[in-house]
Design a protein around this nucleic acid. Structure first.
Length: 260
DNA sequence: ACCTATGTTATCGC
DNA sequence: GGCGATAACATAGG
């Protein structure tokens, strides 16, 4: 479920329970998880060290090692970071395991294998090379106003463009636009100032609240679109029916009555 | 068999 | 170059 709130949950999980524990062994059952690093280099960077700090930019999770290098993780569409415990998925979905000297483990599980890991020396350079925009939770209203002004594309496409704002994907872009009562196809540059402020407030509120509730949709407030993403479902505001349209190859859900 | 699915990247056409 | 649409990657489930 990895959009910004999910990855933030993983970051907190790692920060709370995964740091300052020596890495005894690095297992890579499936090499396709490696991106721009081979298994030997990954093991060399991690074995005998510990993770000592965490960071996140959009959907990328960073774990700094005790040797100044940084483990980069991306979770694709189905990746999960697990700290200790029994694997929550079949063993065939395990893509990376850091076995810890104390007997625990950090694992990346990912059925669809669209996630990846790598190791970098310079996180800022990595973000620049991969054209990652500012993290969505760091966006100030002026930043949002400026980036909207420069783009005639639809609001949903702009929110999901990781080079403009990092962290928002298909599900949360729908939720943010639903909460802000804005049509996903509205040209970004066409918003008036009140609409920009509304979008900014809801963008932060949705992502922050989702992360604080463990990115678990069943814990989200009633009135959120999240559990009503079905064509024809009743709008949680009671105004009409949710419609599904195709935007950029993805299903976009919105309420034509509430969102304009 | 067909369609859909939380992500990213490349390519085509306007 | 911007922008939308499409396919590809890989896998599971309806």
């Amino acid at each position: 479920m990895p959009e910004l709130p999910d990855v933030e949950v993983y970051r907190r999980r790692l920060a709370q329970g995964g740091l300052h524990r020596a890495i005894a062994k690095v297992l890579v059952p499936d090499r396709t998880v490696l991106r721009g690093v081979n298994g030997a280099a990954l093991a060399r960077a991690l074995r005998g060290r510990a993770l000592v700090g965490t960071g996140r930019r959009g959907k990328h999770l960073f774990a700094e090692t005790s040797d100044q290098t940084t483990l980069v993780m991306h979770f694709g569409m189905t990746g999960v970071l697990q700290v200790d415990g029994q694997p929550s998925m079949p063993a065939s979905y395990v893509r990376l395991v850091l076995q810890l000297a104390d007997g625990g483990a950090l694992s990346l599980l990912d059925p669809r294998r669209l996630g990846f890991v790598t190791v970098v020396e310079d996180v800022a350079a990595y973000c620049q090379q991969h054209d990652l925009g500012p993290d969505a939770l760091d966006l100030r209203v002026g930043d949002l106003r400026a980036l909207l002004r420069g783009h005639r594309g639809g609001l949903k496409a702009v929110l999901m463009d990781q080079s403009l704002v990092a962290g928002i994907g298909n599900i949360y872009s729908d939720e943010i636009l639903f909460q802000a009562r804005l049509d996903p196809r509205r040209p970004a540059s066409g918003l008036d100032d009140a609409e920009v402020r509304r979008l900014h407030r809801q963008l932060l509120r949705v992502l922050q609240l989702a992360a604080d509730r463990g990115a678990d949709p069943s814990s989200f407030p009633m009135g959120w679109l999240m559990q009503h993403r079905n064509d024809g479902a009743a709008c949680p505001r009671g105004h009409g029916a949710i419609r599904k349209v195709q935007l950029g190859g993805r299903g976009a859900y919105y309420c034509p009555d509430c969102q304009s």
